[in-house]
């Protein structure tokens, strides 16, 4: 253990892997030294574990109905109580974690590259390219996200897949804005001038020299946006336009719980708390990630 640690802290790194691992190790130490960000990180790890181990934690599945056990308050048998069809809410929350992770990862995977590509291209080339791309960006930005997503879902039909596409389409413009602003400062720097007089073409400069500088702020931004994305997904679910029953999507669960809110508070409160906790975790983690990803603070 201690030899591994000395190797990671070595003054002289001996291979590309070593250099990369060392950077990762120092990033990890910075994350550890920030208790709030680390707490957010632990909650997210917990969420991933719960989602991965759902069949072990809740072996009966999320759709096991028992009408005799309708609307039971939280007890030792049903930790979070049961809903109007007698389904165990704990099991549904556990299985619902999978959907939350599915939506947030897919949105990040779609929106971040689009935003990065549009932003860096507009920022690097400037002129007409910039004007055209940024006006398209403005068009997307000028719609409220949920309304635009509603429109897309209405056009494409309800369902998780379409909800993801709709949310991704509303999530990329702020990322593109951010990437463009970063690119404008980066492209004026001497290290970009240096690679230009080595004869590099625009594609190489953008992909290998500008994108790596934009990635940290984009990752932070996406992480901070993740809370909003989860809320939008839950909002679509709440309106009945996201995940369809009996899928245990947290927003949809909240929506059905609303009908029994006065008699059975737990049906709405539990998924609400799950959404709150996950959004909070993403926000805390995103804030700390800024320090972790800054190469100058090493």
């Amino acid at each position: 253990m201690s030899t591994a640690r000395t190797w990671l802290r070595a003054e002289v790194t001996t291979s590309p892997l070593h250099a990369r691992l060392q950077r990762g190790y120092y990033g990890w130490l910075r994350l550890r030294s920030n208790p709030l960000a680390f707490a957010g990180f632990l909650i997210l790890i917990g969420l991933v574990l719960v989602a991965a181990l759902a069949p072990v934690i809740a072996p009966l599945g999320y759709n096991e109905q028992s009408l005799a056990m309708r609307l039971k308050a939280p007890s030792a048998e049903h930790w979070f109580g049961t809903d109007e069809l007698g389904r165990d809410i704990f099991a549904r929350i556990v299985w619902g974690a999978r959907i939350t992770i599915y939506i947030s990862t897919l949105v990040a995977v779609i929106a971040a590259p689009i935003g990065l590509a549009v932003g860096t291209t507009a920022g690097y080339f400037g002129g007409w390219t910039d004007t055209v791309l940024m006006r398209i960006n403005d068009m997307f930005l000028s719609f409220p996200g949920l309304i635009l997503a509603l429109g897309f879902v209405a056009a494409l039909g309800p369902g998780i897949g379409n909800a993801v596409i709709a949310i991704a389409l509303t999530a990329w413009p702020p990322i593109a804005r951010l990437a463009r602003a970063e690119t404008l400062t980066i492209r004026a720097s001497d290290y970009i001038a240096a690679v230009r007089i080595q004869g590099a073409g625009p594609l190489r400069i953008i992909l290998r020299h500008i994108v790596p500088m934009c990635v940290p702020s984009v990752v932070v931004r996406v992480t901070l946006n993740m809370a909003g994305i989860i809320l939008t997904a839950a909002g679509l679910g709440f309106l009945g336009l996201g995940a369809q029953p009996p899928t245990p999507e947290w927003g949809a669960m909240l929506s059905t719980g609303r009908q029994n809110m006065l008699g059975a508070w737990w049906i709405a409160a539990v998924p609400g708390c799950a959404i709150l906790l996950t959004s909070l975790a993403f926000n805390l983690f995103g804030d700390g990630l800024r320090d972790v990803l800054d190469p100058r603070s090493e």
């Binding site: 590309p16 250099a19 720097s189 001497d190 290290y191 001038a193 240096a194 690679v195 007089i197 080595q198 004869g199 020299h209 790596p212 500088m213 190469p295 100058r296």
Partner: peptide
Amino acid sequence: FRRLQMVFQDPYGSLHPRHT
């Protein structure tokens, strides 16, 4: 560019901070 190269004034700005 194989015939002509340049050395910049500020070595803090002319090296890519994320490249070894």
